[in-house]
Design a protein around this nucleic acid. Structure first.
Lengths: 343, 343
DNA sequence: CTGTGCTCTGTGAGCGTTCACAGTAGAGAA
DNA sequence: TTCTCTACTGTGAACGCTCACAGAGCACAG
């Protein structure tokens, strides 16, 4: 009786069609669709059968028009994209967030705000209510856009700790300080005492916290903190290479180095090799992130694993809770030391 | 007179508000919004001023409800995501597509269909009309989902040539055969005659075409095609390493090797180094893709550049044209030889 | 003067859904 | 019986927009 469905787009069945087939009213179908409260088991079953039979899928536009929700969320990237897309961590984050949202049947809109123009356009788009919330990733993590959106009443969860203390924006981050502490303790346990550090940029919380962890542990262990053993980079491979070179020049007796990202650690390995230092025999090298870079380098890096899968899951959880009316929340997740061949 | 807009989400202005402020009717505002035909300059100006004043942004849900278009498109990935997300090419593709769409003010929905369940859910979502079209990326590029969607009347553009010849699905691909030809010609021009190949998987058009290009050029140059010089891999680093090892075992006099992806070429470099072969002195190595892997390896790889930026732009162009009513189209884009240190 | 064609404008209907409300039926209490 | 309460169901009115249509005003030809 029904027409064949191949070739050409056919007008999809509406809630009305389902109601007719099930022999109930629109309202009942709608109730079944939205949780099934106050629906008799018989009606429930009839509606479900009709949905299967007609192949009905809810029209989200019509729903959104009346509920005011869009049932979709935005994944916003506010930094130069070339850089972030090369970062394996970012890819994991994007993938995990998409999957976590898919479990809730919520589509993810990818938004890239590299230029000022794009930023404006996207901000308008978001504040116009086209997404219910925003997952924000920014390498600086002190991006004003987070506060802007928050001010405008848009639920936001940021990946990584915000710089300013005044910010009331939700965030999920790994325990940078704790991770750094673990790594430095590990290096100390190997008998190393001249431990250098290539920190991250000191205008980011991650950079500051990892350096703080380093200093704390050395202090606690009664090891002198030597400023010649401290340099900072920008998380790029090149800056890791340059940083390690500078350390070697200033402190040739360095016997270990904590490098605040795996990518930088790769660069550091290059510099050490060129300087004729054997890793791990002469110098132990510890990274941070446990990205694919850690296993690809030779020797494979001992590093601090950031639980990106859990970070994504938490970001989604916190965001959905906030959309549901909860207050902003901050979540810090524990890291884990992963031993490989570089220490 | 207007209320402050900070804190809490305020009901956004509608087309009605704009009309009132501009002193015209809804219809006129709508016409301005949709191209401004049949609108007097005075009304045009009044409406634009009112839009600026009220901060009006069109409610896409309401629009979609009536137009039937969603004004958004899906970026669909049908393969195990871990693998693809590691692939730098894929990242470039995703980024460029997002930007190309942003230029048309069209949001991109990221859809990952790893499991069979996810596939079904996403297919329903798509065929229900929640996106106007789909950009499809699949490493196999012989995915049945392309034809399924096409059959269902959903505009689809695939990245890479489809395997089956019967498929009427649009695609955009780099010139694999031509690229392979260029590389092998390049190796010949260096005086190499015992040229091996690590091809891609032979159940994919890319794998087949690159191998075909290799054989063609050797044939044209009158160089004997030696089956011992031909192995295939799966584009992974490990398979490149294994492939190069096998080649060396079977043909120790090999003086060059064309490896069908940069990632595999990295693996091949490792195998060659281990076997004591110098690159490029003893063996020239040519890659394919010009991904970041090409510059990161030592020596930096001579490779064939796939114009991913142009591929993305073309995918979007073809898809939008198809949504606009055009017939499916196939686009093949030229590649480019990039000389570095490995040849 | 009428008719025709053009540009421009306003209006009503309707897209597919949810929500509030009214209403029904049946059970149990008074 | 009658009243109340609960579980369930149907209906009209929105949500904000576009589209088709009708109509106004004007110019110009017949």
């Amino acid at each position: 009786m029904t027409m064949s469905n191949t070739g050409g787009r056919r007008k999809p069945p509406t809630i009305h069609d389902v109601a007719r087939v099930a022999g109930v009213s629109r309202g009942t179908v709608s109730r079944v669709l939205n949780g099934g409260h106050y629906v008799s088991p018989a009606a429930q079953e009839a509606v479900n059968a009709a949905i299967r039979k007609t192949g009905y899928v809810v029209n989200r536009h019509a729903r959104s028009l009346i509920t005011g929700r869009s049932d979709s969320i935005g994944f916003l990237l506010t930094e130069p994209q070339e850089k972030l897309f090369e970062d394996p961590n970012f890819n994991v984050l994007l993938r995990c967030c998409t999957q976590a949202l898919a479990a809730h049947d919520i589509p993810l809109l990818l938004m890239l705000a590299g230029t000022e123009d794009e930023r404006r356009r996207i901000t308008r788009y978001i504040t116009a209510g086209h997404v219910d919330g925003v997952l924000l990733v920014s390498s600086h993590s002190c991006d004003p856009v987070a506060d802007e959106l928050h001010e405008a009443g848009v639920p936001v969860v940021q990946c990584g700790k915000p710089m300013g203390l005044g910010s009331k924006v939700s965030y999920v981050a790994a325990d940078d300080r704790g991770g750094a502490r673990d790594m430095v303790r590990h290096l100390l346990s190997l008998g190393r005492r001249r431990i250098g550090v290539v920190s991250g940029p000191l205008d980011t919380p991650g950079g500051v916290d990892r350096l703080a962890g380093y200093k704390e542990v050395l202090g606690e262990a009664g090891v002198e903190i030597d400023e010649r053993l401290i340099v900072s980079g920008d998380y790029s491979r090149a800056s890791g290479e340059a940083g390690a070179e500078r350390l070697l020049a200033r402190a040739p007796d360095m016997d270990a180095v904590f490098v605040a990202s795996d990518l930088m650690a790769q660069g550091a390995l290059t510099a050490l090799r060129r300087a004729g230092r054997r890793v791990p025999e002469d110098v132990s090298v510890g990274g941070f992130d446990d990205s694919v870079a850690a296993t690809e380098s030779t020797p494979a890096l001992t590093t601090i694993r950031q639980p990106y899968d859990r970070i994504s899951a938490e970001m989604v959880r916190v965001l959905l809770a906030q959309i549901g009316g909860d207050d902003p929340a901050a979540v810090i997740l524990p890291t884990e030391l992963v031993r490989r061949d570089s220490t």
